[in-house]
Computed example of a mutant assay.
Amino acid sequence: MSAARAVPEKLPATLVAVAALAIIAIRLGVPSSPAARDFEECAEWTRRMFPGDERVARIMDCGARFAGRRKADGGYAYYDLLQNRSFDITGPNPTANERAQIYSQYQRFLDLQRREAALAEVQQLVAEQSSVTEQPRVTELPMLINLRRPTTTPSKLEPCVIKGSLSCTWTKLTSTVRNAFASKRVASTNPR
């Protein structure tokens, strides 16, 4: 009996092969799209095959595999985030010549940005210098402020720009109070 237990029962070869393939498939994962020609085909296949969060990760993988996006009128476009513009390319990924052209355009873009920044800096310095030179120079001593109340009061109030506004009402009120005190002062200084 112990000899019979030591020898394991033989499993069919097909069952072992299927189990091995299942384990390998689980470990390696399902490919994102076996024969996709471009991003759009890869993304469409991924949308059909995977649910939820895994779908998003697989579509991001499609984006990493294919830099270009299919255009409606044919061909592909590559969007350069650094330049904020698109370039026409022949396939789903830029060729070496297309990458060189995109890079040269990026160098021009950076040069233009540097020139604009330098020009803005120069314009700012010129504006600061002109504002400094345009200010009048004070050659006289400032006048002392006369703190005495004027002896005459204006006979007419200046017309208010906005009738009923606080500034207009305040002007009328202060003028009325000033006139009342002035008339009492004049009456007290002229005794009859």
Rank of each mutant, 00 (worst) to 15 (best):
M1R: 08
M1V: 06
S2E: 15
R5V: 07
V7K: 12
E9A: 11
K10G: 02
K10V: 09
V16C: 08
A17I: 06
A22M: 15
I26F: 13
V30E: 13
S33T: 03
A36V: 01
F39Q: 08
F39I: 04
E41M: 08
A43W: 01
E44I: 02
W45R: 13
M49C: 05
G52W: 06
E54W: 10
E54G: 01
R55D: 00
A57T: 01
A57I: 03
R58E: 00
I59K: 03
I59Y: 00
M60W: 00
G63Y: 01
R65I: 03
A67E: 06
G68S: 07
R70G: 02
Y76N: 09
A77V: 02
D80G: 03
L82A: 13
R85K: 13
N93F: 04
N93Y: 03
P94Q: 09
R99T: 02
R99D: 05
A100M: 11
Q101S: 07
Y106I: 08
R108T: 11
R115F: 06
E116G: 10
A120Q: 14
E121S: 15
V122Y: 05
V122T: 09
Q129P: 01
S131M: 11
Q135L: 14
L144P: 09
L144H: 12
R148L: 12
T151Q: 12
T152S: 15
E158K: 15
P159A: 13
G164E: 05
G164K: 11
S165I: 14
W170D: 12
L173K: 13
S175D: 10
A180T: 08
A180W: 08
A182H: 10
A187W: 14
N190L: 13
P191D: 03
